[in-house]
Design a protein around this nucleic acid. Structure first.
Lengths: 122, 122
DNA sequence: ATTATATACATAAATTTGTTATGTATATAA
DNA sequence: TTATATACATAACAAATTTATGTATATAAT
């Protein structure tokens, strides 16, 4: 008789994700018009070669918040007896993507400068 | 008689900083051997063209934590009657920089793929 | 049949990591 | 004398996650 013990070493999934999740969601919806939550997790996983894994506990509240803020609107669809909640950018949301992307690009650039010394400050 | 009212609009300093601060500190100490807290804030400000501003409330606890984890060691020096607490990488800290940098580079790359569609996933 | 895995949503508790607000103290420029 | 810069520290608060649960259906594997 065997006893199998699984030891999971928590490694803090994506310590760098913080602050980026909303931008990722908005950008994906700009590119794909409409997506549902689970679809977003899979898309991010596939597009990032498995490096960025969205947890449901982060994703769903983030989607709800973006909707509450008026950046997203939703509709529901049943496929294979399972409910899917689709999200789509509102006009406000469209503007927000641009703003968030600009912010992210700027931050990434400066971060790379510091971490890489690309532009090597004096 | 004039009454001047200043209205400060809080704009959430660096919403994208989260998770990156430790990496920034470690990298700066790899490049500069030894630095004190205030010096780090100024270096980051200057190197990022004022885009990344470290707040003291984030920086000092982060330094203390890195020290407690054994990645940094300190010594004190008095200059102009003011105390400076210098930080320096330990050997452990040296390894940690490499690891954190690799992690950051990987994340940034994947993030850019998603946000820019640089590598445009199918 | 039963179990595991994938799909699909949701929420609550706990944790991490920041911001904001304070506090202390010295030096220097206005 | 006042404001600003230098230099540290910590506590209260807020935000955004992770982790842990819970519900429910479909499908592949045992």
């Amino acid at each position: 008789m065997y006893i199998i013990i699984y030891i999971f070493i928590a490694m803090n999934a994506n310590p760098l994700l913080k602050g980026t999740l909303q931008t990722i969601i908005l950008k994906l919806l700009e590119d794909n018009t409409e997506m549902y939550g689970y679809e977003i997790t899979q898309k991010v996983k596939q597009a990032s070669a498995g490096e960025i894994m969205l947890t449901e506990g982060a994703l769903y509240p983030a989607l709800h918040k973006l909707e509450a803020e008026g950046f997203l609107e939703t509709f529901t669809q049943v496929v294979d007896n399972r409910v899917r909640k689709y999200y789509r950018l509102t006009e406000e949301g469209g503007k927000e993507v641009t703003s968030k992307l600009k912010e992210a690009q700027g931050f990434i650039e400066q971060l790379q400068t510091i971490l890489n010394l690309k532009t090597a400050a004096k």
